[in-house]
Computed example of a mutant assay.
Amino acid sequence: MLTLLHTSPVHVPVFDALRDRHHPGLELRHLVHEELLAAARSDGPGAMDSALGVVLTEAVADGATVVLCTRSTIGGAAQAYTARLGVPVLRVDRPMAAAAGAAAPERDTVRIAVVAALRSTLAPTTDLIREEAAAAGRRADLRTVWADGAWDRFEGGDRDGYLDLVARAVDAITGVDVVVLAQASMAAAADRTGTALPVLSSPAPGLRAAVAAAAGDAERSARDV
């Protein structure tokens, strides 16, 4: 069972729509734990580690064979449970980070703008991009771009206002090879931009990687029967 761990219910329809479009018939289980993000924001990612462990352990006990964490802020902490739980725990932003690190292949350095609306997302995202770029033998020249006021719109339930402010921030960016949207909730803003730059978001490639991992697990289980 592919299980998705969210820290906001707004992500559920996003991933259901991606499933319907690209992976019809796939069964997904959604878990929403808003308290994990609240703990990470107030005291840092380590503050919610114990609660995260409980959530993931219960998910595996309920049949999860792959878990996809859709919140960048806690993705690294969630992924660290893979060995302990014996099932893949994936972070949704890793495929996006790998794609960003592979941009502009004609140069040793790739120039990346990371758009964020929530400060707790920034360090996990930039660290991951540097890691993926280094794995590809590249250096990541990172620039942080804040979507001012966007998170207040998100928390206030103004999705259109949130996405418009993110798109506005993207459209003001110049002098980079690729733009990364640091939060999964930003994905739809890419369709509202007028930039000619590549704009990467995490939900579609993240779900694709999780589906592949789940398929691999099913194949291994079939061979073991």
Rank of each mutant, 00 (worst) to 15 (best):
R107F: 09
Q79E: 15
S201H: 13
A47T: 05
D217W: 10
G46I: 00
A59T: 00
A116F: 09
R21P: 06
A187W: 04
A215T: 14
R91I: 11
L165G: 04
D16E: 15
E35Q: 11
A99Y: 00
R119F: 07
T70E: 03
A103N: 04
A40I: 02
R143M: 08
T125S: 08
R159T: 13
T126C: 10
L163I: 10
G101Q: 12
G149S: 06
T65L: 10
V176N: 02
W146N: 01
A113V: 12
D177G: 08
R111Y: 06
G86I: 11
V178L: 11
S8P: 06
D224Y: 07
A215C: 05
P13Q: 11
V176R: 06
R139M: 05
L118M: 11
V170D: 09
G76R: 12
L165E: 04
I74M: 09
G101H: 11
L128T: 05
P88C: 07
T193V: 10
V166W: 01
D164M: 11
L52T: 04
H6E: 01
A117P: 11
H33T: 13
A113W: 03
G216S: 05
A103F: 11
E58K: 09
R208A: 15
L4S: 04
T125F: 00
A51V: 10
D127Y: 00
L4P: 01
S120Y: 05
H23K: 13
M96P: 02
A188R: 13
R71N: 14
D191L: 12
A98Y: 13
V87L: 14
W151P: 01
R84T: 11
A77H: 07
A222F: 05
D49A: 15
A99P: 01
E132H: 06
G206M: 10
D43V: 00
D127R: 10
A97W: 05
E34A: 15
I173Y: 05
V87Q: 13
